[in-house]
Nucleic acid binder design. Sequence first.
RNA 1: GGCCCCAUCGUCUAGUGGUUAGGACAUCGGCCUCUCACGCCGGUAACAGGAGUUCAAAUCUCCUUGGGGUCGCCA
Length: 479
Amino acid sequence: MTVRVRFAPSPSGYLHIGGARTALFNWLWARNTGGTFVLRVEDTDQERSSLDSVSAILDAMEWLGLDWDEGPVKGGPCGPYFQSERRERYRAVVDEMIGAGTAYRCYATKEELDAARTELKAKDPKAQFVYPGWWRDRRDWPTNAPYVVRFKSPRDGQTTVRDQVRGAVTTPNSQLQDFVLMRSDGYPLYNLSCVVDDHDMGITLVARGDDHLINTAPQILIHEALGWTPPTFAHLPMMLSPKGEKLSKRHAAVAVQDYRARGYSPMGVLNYLVRFGWSHGDQEVFSRSELIGLFGWDHVGKSAGKFDEKKFLDVNFAHLKDERLTDTEAYLAAVAPFLARRGIVEPDPALLRAALPHIRERARTYEEAAFALDYFFRELPEIDPQAAAKFLTPATGPILDGLAVALDASAEWQAAALEARFRAWLESSGHELKLAAQPARVALTGRTASPPLFDVMEVVGRARTVRRLRHAAQTAAGG
RNA sequence: GGCCCCAUCGUCUAGUGGUUAGGACAUCGGCCUCUCACGCCGGUAACAGGAGUUCAAAUCUCCUUGGGGUCGCCA
């Protein structure tokens, strides 16, 4: 049987980092097996779903490179892929179930239910309300009254889920109640639409978050009520906040787009996410193609983990600093928007290529890269006042002037030659490299930390190096 | 509270009966050095507790404890 997996987000916001992890595992499995990755939009909650959310999610998926074979935009043989467009199908299924006696109309109103809930609460605050099945066996349906359709859940026995990562998980059916399949407005509820679509779309494996483990027994029961064979399941361990709570905005950035905005690379994100629950021995860093080749369910863990931004940053860094993982072209394309944000638009490509090797190992994100690249593209660097106060003192003025002259006299404008000139001049004038280096760095970069001085000079070029040294000398004299 | 799931360094994890319990992040030292990084070397740091099974248990079983999930006309 060829693998068909799906990712089924509900469009009520952005793509959550945990959702992205679910999507990734499904996608990897499809790509690993040559199967099909289906994207399905679960927009049956009219109040929460929005078109903006759909495009935000599709956008994030594309950015991550999690391409889908069937779904929105792409289409496919099992469409439509928006649940809101599949209502007749759910209606038909529900009618079939009512006909077969595995579901029934329930005319209890929300008000009646709420009243029963509060009444119970008053009697016993700790008790849990269970729908008592008022309409379970009634046939005296009123005409023109709104109703929901409920599942006629078996009262005894047990249901066992076969799960790729957990093994067999058994729930007593007595725990289940006659849950609602279809709202009074005709829209299906999650458990129904999910089952119908997984069946209709030929899904063979449902991989999703652990929080859905509890939904699985009811879903299997629906499958069985319809005479269908349930797919197999894989419940992924939860991603928790650093404190061990449900991961939300309060604890960390949780939207994929947040990381994009901060200058993370798609593979940095994917690599961090895949290691959350999956491992391959001691290996930490993976390319996209390695991941596809290596991924499998046998090394997916069971225990929930806590989100760690520091590790995340480091994994991203691993991808940015290694040109085998992020080649020059990809790097330059990715850093461009962050340069633009600093006002550096259409930077000189040759200059960019020359500077890049020097900042790669100093930038953990593209945002940091843009910062590290900044002064290469300016006439004069923006000088940090604290750096100036510390290093551009009256005493350093003449040194910087002297250096400007000495370096300008160099025939060759290349790091090693410049260093030789620099050292020679210092020696002849009785200064120490250690003392002259920082003022020169501030002159060149405006900062106290940068790539090696002579590399910077080489990339910045003769004219601007000399100008920067002279300008800083003036500042030093004036300050 | 009922039901379900989970349990190795602070964090992510390797480990599938016999290991000095390994790696990575973080952290702390050191080397390199014109600064910052990168890189390299080294340190601190874990099998939740208790019973079993076994010649042998981080690995198997049970109990306890702890954590998480879920109990909607949300997904």
